[in-house]
Computed example of a mutant assay.
Amino acid sequence: MVPTFLTLLRPCTAVAAVAVTGAVVATLVAAPASATTPGANGRIAYKQYLDADRTTGAIFTIRPDGTATRQVTRPTAGTVDDQPDWSPDGSLVAFRRCAPDTVCAIYTVHPDGSHLTRLSPPCAATGPDLETKCPDESEVAFMPDGRHVVYTRSTGLVREFPNGEGFIEHSDVVVRDLSGTHSRVILRSRPFAGDNNEMVVSPDGKQIAFRRENSPLTKPAGGIALFVMRSDGSHIRRITPWSLHAGDHPDWSPDGRWILFRSNEDGGFLDSQLYVVHPDGSGRRQVTHVSADTMLLSSSFSPEGTSVVYARSGVGGQPDIFTARLDGSHVRQVTSTSLWDSAPDWGPARS
């Protein structure tokens, strides 16, 4: 009998490479706000592909009014820096870097581009089955104290299923400090059961929202939904119906009352809408009302909590960055390029 989703997920404390102490866990829970940090609206971080073939991507920031664009990272050709996440005080940006012939890794950088720091362990391995030799680490987000991050660590073999999809053996949710030396696995799935990724921490630090995609071994096969768990990996519950196919980097509102997400994530970027839902799964409502042929990508709350930033079809049909109010009104275009701008995260204003 194929086990159900909830039996496949379990908290995991014994498999950490280096366990953190209970005092550190308490700090993560009790610290000030994370997710989109409450405060005045600051700059928006986002990924821009630097070429039409989307082989190289860098992190940029821009003011919400569309001025003062700044390139933060300068990857080598063929490397993609993606999914930026602001630290609670706006002093750092975390992101993932994926380069050819190696695994993805997580980094931090100052908003001016200085002090680029790799948090993932170095990987010198080459050849097939890289994830059996080095962890693939991505989808990084800051914890509330600004001194730890949560991310997805993928390891093991990749199993190919008859439908053509491949799933990694282990998809762990891990917490690591900014030194990169102390980590703790808080959630692991059974082998090849599916992917746990795109985590974001609640403003009070007590809960983590994440996206779950089931493999054919887990019911419903191929299902995609948002889940919420406690920050220690316990009390997991699904908050969106499987029918919405919801995911794509959810974000908590600064007051902790709402989670923002995109629907129909497995259908590419078309026929999608942005929604908000309470952390207990109630009160779901639609934010955007774009046409089915409009590309719609991931999103983030503003620090003031009254607006959202997201990527959608813009110049030449390529995604640009837009902002709108929570009711979908007052849409404003922030970037206008012929390149692909996406993965926005709205940061706090810095004094």
Score class of each variant (00 low, 15 high):
Arg237His: 15
Ser114Met: 12
Ser183Gln: 15
Ile62Arg: 04
Ser253Thr: 05
Ile239Lys: 05
Leu339Met: 11
Arg332Trp: 08
Arg237Ser: 15
Thr323Gly: 04
His245Leu: 13
Gly268Asp: 04
Pro319Leu: 06
Ser307Gly: 04
Pro135Tyr: 03
Val308Gln: 07
Lys133Asp: 08
Pro250Ser: 14
Leu9Gly: 10
Ile321Gly: 03
Asp129Phe: 03
Thr132Gln: 09
Asp345Gly: 14
Ala30Asn: 14
Thr36Ala: 15
Gly146Ala: 06
Arg350Glu: 04
Gly316Tyr: 00
His245Tyr: 02
Gly316Thr: 00
Ser336Ala: 15
Arg350Asn: 08
Pro319Trp: 02
Asp51Lys: 09
Glu160Val: 14
Lys206Glu: 12
Tyr275Trp: 12
Leu270Asp: 00
Val72Gln: 09
Thr126Tyr: 00
Val228Lys: 02
Gln48Tyr: 00
Thr108Leu: 10
Asn264Tyr: 00
Leu28His: 09
Val309Thr: 15
Asn41Tyr: 01
Pro348Gln: 09
Val201Trp: 14
Leu226Gly: 05
Thr73Glu: 04
Thr79Gly: 02
Val174Trp: 07
Asp53Leu: 11
Ala343Ile: 00
Ser263Phe: 02
Tyr275Ser: 06
Leu260Asp: 01
Gly316Met: 00
Gly166Thr: 13
Pro216Gln: 07
His148Gln: 05
Glu160Ile: 12
Ser263Trp: 02
Val29Arg: 13
Thr73Val: 05
His148Ile: 05
Val277His: 03
Ser329Pro: 04
Ala343His: 07
Phe301Lys: 11
Arg350Leu: 15
Thr181Gly: 13
Leu50Ile: 01
His245Cys: 09
Ser171Ile: 15
Gly256Thr: 04
Tyr46Ile: 00
Ala292Lys: 13
Asp248Val: 05
Leu50Phe: 01
Asp266Ser: 14
Ser291Leu: 10
Ala94Gln: 12
Arg350Ala: 11
Glu169Ala: 14
Ser231Met: 07
Cys12Ala: 12
Ala125Ser: 11
Arg10Lys: 14
Arg54Asp: 13
Gly223Phe: 03
Ser120Leu: 04
Phe161Tyr: 14
Asp248Ala: 15
Ser138Thr: 15
Phe261Met: 02
Ala68Ser: 10
Arg97Asn: 09
Gly194Thr: 11
Gly267Asn: 10
Trp252Gly: 13
Ser291Met: 03
Ala52Tyr: 06
Ala141Asn: 12
Arg97Asp: 08
Gln286Val: 10
Phe5His: 05
His235Asp: 15
Val18Pro: 01
Asp51His: 06
Asp248Asn: 13
Ala26Asp: 15
Gly316Leu: 00
Asn214Pro: 06
Leu270Val: 02
Pro254Leu: 03
Leu339Phe: 07
Phe95His: 09
Val2Gly: 08
Pro191Ile: 15
Gly314Trp: 01
Arg10Asp: 07
His235Thr: 14
Arg176Asp: 03
Ala31Pro: 06
Asp136Lys: 05
Pro216Arg: 04
Gln83Lys: 10
Cys104Thr: 13
Ser282Val: 10
Arg74Glu: 07
Gly267Lys: 11
Gln48Val: 03
Ala141Glu: 15
Thr36Val: 09
Pro241Gly: 11
Thr155His: 04
Thr55Ser: 14
Gly164Asp: 05
Pro100Ser: 06
Thr323Tyr: 01
Cys134Trp: 01
Glu265Gln: 07
His330Trp: 09
Arg96Cys: 10
Pro128Gly: 12
Val20Ala: 03
Pro64Met: 04
Ser120Gln: 11
Pro3Asn: 05
Leu217Ser: 13
